[in-house]
Design a protein around this nucleic acid. Sequence first.
DNA 1: GGAGTGGACGACAACGTTGTCATAACGACG
DNA 2: CGTCGTTATGACAACGTTGTCGTCCACTCC
Lengths: 328, 328
Amino acid sequence: MNDVARLAGVSIKTVSRVVNDEPAVHPETAARVLAAIEQLRFRRNAGASNLRRGSATGTLGLIVEDVGNPFFSGLTRAVERVAVGFGKQVLTGSSDLDPDRERELALEFCARRVDGMLVVPAGSRHAYLEPELRAGTPIVFADRPPGDLTADTVLVDNAAGAAAAVAHLAAHGHRRIAFIGDSPEIYTARERLRGFREGCVSAGVGQDARLIALREPSARGVADTVHGMLTGPDAATAVVAGNNRITVHLLRALAHSEHRPALVGFDDVELADLLDPPVSVIAHDVGVLGRTAAELLFARLQGDQSPPRKVVLPVHLVARGSGEVAPA
Amino acid sequence: MNDVARLAGVSIKTVSRVVNDEPAVHPETAARVLAAIEQLRFRRNAGASNLRRGSATGTLGLIVEDVGNPFFSGLTRAVERVAVGFGKQVLTGSSDLDPDRERELALEFCARRVDGMLVVPAGSRHAYLEPELRAGTPIVFADRPPGDLTADTVLVDNAAGAAAAVAHLAAHGHRRIAFIGDSPEIYTARERLRGFREGCVSAGVGQDARLIALREPSARGVADTVHGMLTGPDAATAVVAGNNRITVHLLRALAHSEHRPALVGFDDVELADLLDPPVSVIAHDVGVLGRTAAELLFARLQGDQSPPRKVVLPVHLVARGSGEVAPA
DNA sequence: GGAGTGGACGACAACGTTGTCATAACGACG
DNA sequence: CGTCGTTATGACAACGTTGTCGTCCACTCC
């Protein structure tokens, strides 16, 4: 800026005025300054500007489990869309479900003085964020609630969705329904299992510990698990898959076996409608999830001081075929 | 930092020393300072630190077309992985294929003094980045080359892939092969068409303008296009889909029609192996694409001064069934 | 002609850090 | 006992901006 000022024959402050479109600069002077800026290819240092101006850095932090997963990338995109509307940039990070990594990312974002943070929490301890919250950095949790902290949270109705899946399968005559979910450390996995159990009770379907598995999904693990559930005297006739990855693993495992249980997945999956049979799922809109969370965050940024909110978004059953078959 | 210094009864500089793990601080003093930091929950301002220290902000800029698209989110993830290894944060932005938006993002990133940038270019004019490049900010282009600029670029072998698709279909007896690609404004779409044409020539397959379509894909548009190509006297017996979105639209369109042309898609698609018939594709690894580009960038950041490099990654045909059927 | 008004601009400090240099206290050495 | 090196610490400037306030000039109005 100094160089620009010198070249234009004005003071550094006048350059600042021009850069910031402040009034009270003679058009002729402004033109000279702009020419100098152009010539020297000057670009104002946003960091210095933010430092001087005080708080707002025009940056948002977003922590998800894995940007590479379509679910989280959809969420990321939705957040980005809202952020663009407010002229903010988004710093993204994947926690890989590791609480330490999440914490590291969060603190790093705080050090960079993000204006706000959106977090898909990995662990269950988030008290370390309390000072930040109290210091005025709004934080919104998405998809899962924070562990030991009260803050804005946007969830989907996991339990109701799982219960609906059970009810649907029971309505088609199933009495032996299995549930394969993600690791019980994950909130959504626990909630979906809870909904599954409640659905079983409501539908008068018996529960069998052999037909319930919660575990971090892998192709092999899911294949073995489901194989065990579909064989033997009390084999399952229907399966509820706990999330998109499990659904995919399950489909692949079933394609390589002769079993054809009824199936309802949680989370929608691309091309699910083109499979044979088309896969029925409990669907919800990641876009809405991300947008809602981001809008909540921006409301806070604009001064909303109301008590922490908890939003639960609805899910709905998409019946495509795989869930509408009677027991063999 | 001032407050911490006061509370610990030391000068602000000593606090700085402690925060930066500099030696020559008495352990006892350091302990007092750390206690004060803990008590006041002090977090050093990364912006101010970067300002004082000079260049490196520990930030990378990444511009893709759409983080929500699995292709780009996979790339994002790969970049992130490399960045974490070097202790950098990633600022992400989606251009939506809009050159103005891309430029806006790029300049914004420059204003934030990112240490380097990874760009999946939207338009074909990138001369505006030359001053940044010359100023020492390394920029690597991924998936598509920059328009009017010489810089590091990582591509996949689009033409060879498309040619391989044609050769494969021709080997199964097809003589009427159609190509449905993305908008010709996109480099990869043009290259794939070029490869398609070359493949036709090599295989001695005639080309028919009626069987070639380049257009921004939409479900409706693809359906109409393919319907036209598959009916009439000189109907196509095989189709090459120009990218993942087109493949998906195409599959959906075909599922609702009686036509069953042979099909080879470009880019792999999740669940493609479970469809009936399983979808053959020209596959390549986004993870490798992202990683290679990021590694190239970090090489530059570590002082690599060699002339701009151009890396072309291989693609390979995955024969699953849909491309291995003879003409009806 | 003097007072008042408003426009155009600059000097200076400050944002939160850190690099540079100076200083003080201390033991060791000849 | 004076000198020296070492260790621990602080004062101060600087990074690149911008907010505050002051100055200067031209102009208007009575």
